[in-house]
Amino acid sequence: MEHLIDIVLLGLLMITGFAIVRMKSLLAVAMLTSIYSLLSASLFVVLDAVDVALTEAAIGAGISTILMLATVALTRDEEKAPRHTPLLPLAVVTVTGAALIYGTLDMPHYGDPAAPVHQHAASAYLHDTPGEIGVPNVVTSVLASYRGYDTLGEVTVIFTAGAGVLALLGYRTRRRNIQGPGIRKLVVLRVIAKLFFPLILLFALYVLFHGDYGPGGGFQAGVIFATGFILYALAFGLGNAQRVIHHPLLRIMAAVGVLIYAAVGIEGILLGGKFLEYGVLADDPVTGQHLGIMLIELGVGITVAAVMLIIYYGFVSRQD
């Protein structure tokens, strides 16, 4: 049964991919990309990667689509036909694909428990997590504790991307709230947005602090938090959203998140441990791990939410 779902979802992904190649309207392509992400998120659930599925659904199907739509609105929404015949690219793609498929023939079969991937570090993580970290979600324990350096690097990458978009697009504050005649008619949308805005923020906090026990964590929570404000901006206009959460505040928060993460690491050194060693943060090593994971997830969440909103403001405030 599981294989059947897997096969069908992958087939649908392939069809969506081909449709994206053929479509000329970029608006339709952006929507198809969203469908593509949602399908891959469903596939990740089938493949047991619930944390990844949550992230892909929030980021791929949510925020990426909004950014692509914003870009399409700023550029032309029809694609011109290419000037060259597509024969050479087609040949390159076919040869590369054939070489890669030849390469897979040596790979272990899908789902094989004896595959080399599963032999090295993963079994140790699965075995040691309950005793050393004391959280049920192994993905969180590996992300936040065993591979904490790695995640610090990723958060810095996010921060850098936010700075890059800020440098490229800048931001403009809207003093007046420019509204077309259309947006005033969206009464239903506004009522529902007002009803759901606090619930989305609450859900983000749940995902953030429940990440030890179920799927979730700082990355997903940050994105969901930002989505709440994006919904607000869509329904009530960008000017009102900027009044709720100021741009200078966002820039400070983006840095504060990374600093919280690094400060937890340095606190470990000051208390006599190593960088990002959470065990020394409390008397009991397991409690220390809990505390450390909670704090760094908070830092990750703050940075991700702030950067997503900086990017969103950057794109949308270009539209005049």
Binding site: L186, V188, L189, I192, L195, F196
Partner: peptide
């Protein structure tokens, strides 16, 4: 039951 009809309405 809230989001579906709202999205279609919008």
């Amino acid at each position: 039951i809230f989001t579906g009809p709202t999205a279609v309405h919008a």
